[in-house]
């Protein structure tokens, strides 16, 4: 049970504790624990098979957890209360191909007591999708827009998007992101979206969750995450070896990941002191940070206090 109550629970959009799911004897999601503050646009990244889709489906109420629990604004995921406050857009964006766009919106209206027809219709019209067109004949971008319209028309407080941009061309991707973020600005919706397109996450997301084999590796504000990391580069042949056999000059830092060839060696670190010696120092992009954490072995997780669930799992590293 969640220890948080009342106002505190309201400020947390999603709390996941020890969440796991197994199919047969195989665990596809194991011991996921984090907290997502309300009002954020959160990117969920991780390698294939880390159970991102399964986790979103559990939160959306489509699947049951085999272990642990997920709470949406304090309510158990999948329950009648949570179901009304969560919208989920599966990766394949399933819609009834034989319905017209108008009928698809009618479905949203018939199946959701909080439905906002004006919003949904406006969202569809803004993408110049004809209301009388059959869904089966729409382009990928138009389909995504209609599916998003149904999700947003539900007037959810938490929107879950599974790889929403994966199959869209860059222009449509941008339009879709812009339209989604417009609604986020208007309504203060919390968004949790999984994506492979790490490069696109930095203007889209202000929060990041990175899950990998060993559990949650990185969680917190995007700006914060970037600001506590530095990329250090040096010509490989000029790096002296330190007393412990590692490259010298990195002793004071937490090295997240280091790689290099005969010419250059690059390390992503959380600095613990001044940077010096042969190392050149620059600010990393979000993509570099994410890739470094995906490549590392799980030895240096960074969990920001606002995503930390007290009493569960690893310590706060901040």
């Amino acid at each position: 049970m969640s220890g948080s109550t009342g106002e505190a629970a309201e400020r947390t959009a999603l709390e996941v504790r020890g969440l796991g799911r197994q199919y047969g004897r195989r665990w596809v999601l194991r011991d996921a624990t984090f907290r997502l503050p309300a009002g954020r646009v959160c990117g969920l990244v991780g390698p294939n098979g880390a159970g991102k889709t399964t986790m979103l489906e559990i939160v959306a109420g489509l699947r049951e957890a085999s272990a642990g629990e997920a709470r949406v604004f304090g309510e158990p995921a999948g329950g009648a209360q949570a179901r009304q406050r969560v919208a989920f857009l599966p990766q394949e964006k399933p819609l009834f191909a034989r319905f017209t766009v108008a009928e698809t919106l009618r479905l949203g209206h018939e199946l959701n007591p909080r439905w906002d027809q004006e919003l949904a219709e406006g969202f569809v019209r803004a993408g110049s999708v004809p209301l009388d067109a059959k869904v089966g004949r729409l382009s990928g971008g138009q389909r995504t827009r209609v599916a998003l319209a149904v999700a947003l028309g539900k007037r959810p407080d938490l929107v879950l998007l599974d790889e929403p941009l994966a199959d869209l061309d860059p222009l449509v991707r941008r339009q879709t992101v812009a339209a989604l973020l417009g609604e986020v600005a208007e309504r203060g919706i919390t968004v949790l979206l999984s994506s492979h397109l790490v490069a696109e996450l930095d203007t889209l997301c202000d929060y990041l969750l990175l899950v990998a084999e060993g559990g949650l590796q990185l969680a917190g504000d995007v700006d914060e995450i970037i600001s506590v990391h530095r990329t250090l580069t040096a010509p490989t042949d000029r790096i002296p070896t330190g007393p412990d056999g590692l490259p010298a000059g990195l002793e004071h830092h937490t090295v997240v990941e280091i790689h290099g060839d005969q010419r250059y060696t690059t390390a992503l670190v959380r600095p613990g002191g001044p940077v010096g010696g042969v190392w050149e120092d620059s600010a990393p992009t979000l993509e570099e940070v994410v890739l470094a954490y995906l490549a590392q072995n799980g030895s240096a997780p960074l969990i920001s206090p606002n995503s930390y669930v007290p009493g569960v799992g690893s310590e706060v590293v901040k």
Partner: peptide, 14 residues
């Protein structure tokens, strides 16, 4: 088969 079970499954009714 078409995935619409998911689509309906995430609307407000169980």
């Amino acid at each position: 088969e078409t995935g619409t079970a998911k689509f309906v499954g995430v609307q407000s009714y169980g």
